[in-house]
């Protein structure tokens, strides 16, 4: 036994003290990590709010941008707001029924092996980077038909599909089997049981899942660069044309050297952020509420 070991045995309190100091130190680091996590969110949101609020006015929402503007011309981003609405609306219209049907198949009809297989496919789809989805739709649609809001909406729908399907599968799995059995035992056909008894139970969950998916794709830029970015400056809602969108507008304005463009980028970012925070927090709240309700039913 070395001298150091002996002295350690003779003074056990030293070791205990050291262990406590290490423990305190680690606890302190964890507290700091928690504080830093919240602080990062605070700093980003505060930066956007402070710079965006001063530029936020009615002109931004109602006026179109003026190309090559000279002097103090009132400029807005109304075209981008309209375009984002059109794109996200179209994407939701495509992804929502598709996703719900996939979820119904996976949860109500598929054998276990198929269920796992489709689950894996949804996970992989969810992991495909947005920019790759962008060039995929570029190759699929844009090469032959040119850029359009349809092309952009298809790209966004590809991103939404796994989100909507996953959320719907989750709530379908929460519906108690006794409901299905009771309905089937009364002689109700399987399809009416699924659509009339099981699906209505999950409406809340599907709505929250869709809101989260909308919040996610409303801010997506990467899939739109190759599919719906070469847009004009007039206010347009024809989905056959390439329409300007808020995220693409922010991206382009942030690359500009003109401080006035930066100011509009901040204002647009603030509007986008408010929309996303509002819808994701509402969705979270609704999800917690409906889960409590479903939990009580079982």
């Amino acid at each position: 036994m070395s001298a150091a070991d002996v002295s350690a045995l003779q003074r056990p309190n030293d070791r205990l003290r050291r262990r406590r100091v290490v423990n305190r130190g680690m606890e302190l680091l964890a507290w700091l990590a928690g504080a830093l996590g919240v602080a990062i969110l605070g700093v980003v949101v505060w930066s956007v709010a402070k710079r965006g609020a001063s530029e936020l006015n009615l002109d931004l929402l109602t006026k179109a941008p003026v190309p090559f503007a000279i002097g103090n011309v009132k400029q807005g981003l109304a075209n981008a707001f309209v375009g984002s609405l059109v794109l996200v609306g179209l994407a939701t219209a495509m992804a929502l029924p598709f996703g719900i049907l996939v979820a119904i198949y996976v949860n109500e009809f598929a054998p276990r092996a198929v269920r796992n297989g489709v689950g894996l496919v949804l996970d992989v789809l969810n992991g495909v980077p947005g920019i790759v989805v962008g060039i995929f739709v570029f190759g699929l649609v844009v090469v032959s038909h040119g850029q359009s809001a349809y092309a952009g909406a298809i790209a966004l729908a590809v991103l939404m599909l796994p989100l909507v399907a996953r959320a719907t599968i989750e709530v379908l799995a929460l519906v108690p089997n006794t409901l299905r059995e009771a309905s089937l035992a009364l002689g109700v056909p399987r399809w009416r049981t699924t659509l009339g008894i099981v699906l209505p139970q999950t409406v809340g969950g599907i709505v929250t899942g869709t809101m989260l998916a909308v919040a996610r794709v409303a801010g997506e830029t990467a899939p739109l660069l190759f599919t719906c970015s070469l847009a004009g400056t007039s206010i347009d809602s024809n989905p056959g044309h390439a329409l300007q969108t808020i995220p693409v507008a922010i991206f382009e304005l942030s690359e500009s050297a003109d401080p006035a463009d930066h100011a509009r980028a901040w204002a647009a970012a603030l509007v986008l952020l408010l929309f996303i925070l509002f819808s994701s927090l509402t969705a979270r709240w609704l999800a917690a509420r409906s889960r409590r309700k479903l939990g009580r039913a079982t």
């Binding site: 996590g37 919240v38 990062i40 969110l41 980003v44 949101v45 930066s47 956007v48 919040a215 996610r216 409303a218 801010g219 997506e220 830029t221 990467a222 995220p247 922010i250 991206f251 942030s254 980028a265 901040w266 970012a269 986008l272 952020l273 996303i276 925070l277 994701s280 927090l281 979270r284």
Partner: peptide, 17 residues
């Protein structure tokens, strides 16, 4: 909730910042 909200901020806004 706050830390997970960080995930909801679009990449273009974080990039702008």
């Amino acid at each position: 909730a706050l830390v997970e909200t960080l995930a909801a901020i679009p990449s273009v806004v974080i990039g702008l910042w």
